[in-house]
Amino acid sequence: MLTSFEDLWTHVADNYIVIVSIILFGIGFTMLLFSRNLLKKVVGLNIMDTGVYLLLVSMGYIDGRHAPIIANGITDAANYINPIPSGLVLTGIVVSVSVTAIMLSLIVRLYEKYHSLNLDEIYELRNKEENT
């Protein structure tokens, strides 16, 4: 286990991909909450997705091994990295493309109705519409 500060530091330095993916996730999440512009919210969600994919793919990597494409007839599993996270990320990318397309088309409809991309303005206009 991690006993000294040096151990902790080397552990964190080894896991730098995880830290980068967490920072990407944080940037996307902050953008999703902070921005009032609907398009920027969609961009933030996509940055969040990128962080998650980076984390998943890096979990399948094993030092010094090759991509999981059988080469030169070697079928020993000790020669290749883990193929399962790659397949999972493929699924995730497809879902995120579909979700992005549907969100963008909903935003187009909202813009055609309210002529605004600002969430606060849309709420106000909708409240006004309901109250009158």
Binding site: D14, N15, I19, Y61, D63
Partner: peptide, 9 residues
């Protein structure tokens, strides 16, 4: 991150 296993092991 501290409690994750070492990366690439």
């Amino acid at each position: 991150v501290v409690s994750l296993p070492p990366h690439g092991n």
